[in-house]
Simulated assay, not measured.
Amino acid sequence: MSASEYDAELDARGLFCPEPVMMLHNRINDVEPGGVLRVVATDPSTTRDIPRFCQFLGHELVGRAESGDLFIYLIRRGT
């Protein structure tokens, strides 16, 4: 995922539930509606929590990947 694919980034490496989603809740507001936020996390619970966050708050999970112990998400902010 290159930097041209997203508008902002949240580095949540080393944080554990519920911190990554709490930080995501704040950081997504810094992104313009329709913009994409890249989230990098190491907590496996984000594989459950981030898709639910998007579903409940009207954001679109446009991409996700795992690389070793990293979980990477691309989230398009809803309106």
Rank of each mutant, 00 (worst) to 15 (best):
M1D: 06
S2C: 05
A3Q: 11
S4W: 11
E5A: 14
E5L: 09
E5Y: 09
Y6G: 04
D7W: 08
A8P: 05
A8G: 12
A8M: 10
E9L: 09
E9D: 06
E9K: 09
E9W: 05
L10P: 05
D11I: 04
A12F: 12
G14L: 06
L15M: 08
F16Q: 06
C17D: 07
C17G: 03
P18N: 08
P18G: 06
E19L: 13
E19C: 07
P20W: 02
P20A: 04
P20Y: 04
V21N: 07
M22D: 14
M22H: 14
M23L: 15
L24Y: 06
L24R: 02
H25W: 08
H25E: 13
N26E: 14
I28M: 08
I28Q: 05
E32P: 11
E32V: 15
E32W: 13
E32F: 15
P33E: 04
P33A: 04
G34S: 00
G34L: 00
G35H: 09
G35A: 07
V36R: 08
V36P: 04
V36I: 11
R38M: 14
R38L: 13
R38K: 15
V39R: 08
V39I: 15
V40H: 11
A41C: 03
A41H: 01
T42M: 13
D43N: 08
D43C: 10
S45I: 07
S45T: 13
T46I: 09
T47E: 12
T47H: 12
R48A: 11
R48P: 03
D49S: 15
D49V: 12
D49P: 08
I50F: 12
P51K: 07
R52P: 03
F53L: 07
C54N: 00
C54S: 08
C54I: 03
C54D: 05
Q55L: 15
Q55K: 12
Q55P: 02
F56L: 12
L57N: 13
L57G: 00
G58R: 00
G58C: 02
G58M: 00
H59M: 01
E60H: 01
L61G: 06
L61K: 00
L61V: 01
V62Q: 03
A65I: 05
E66P: 00
E66Q: 15
S67A: 15
S67I: 07
G68K: 05
G68L: 06
G68P: 06
G68A: 13
D69M: 09
D69T: 10
L70N: 02
L70M: 03
L70F: 08
F71W: 11
F71S: 06
Y73Q: 07
L74Q: 12
L74P: 03
L74T: 02
I75E: 01
R76Y: 02
R76E: 01
G78E: 02
T79E: 14
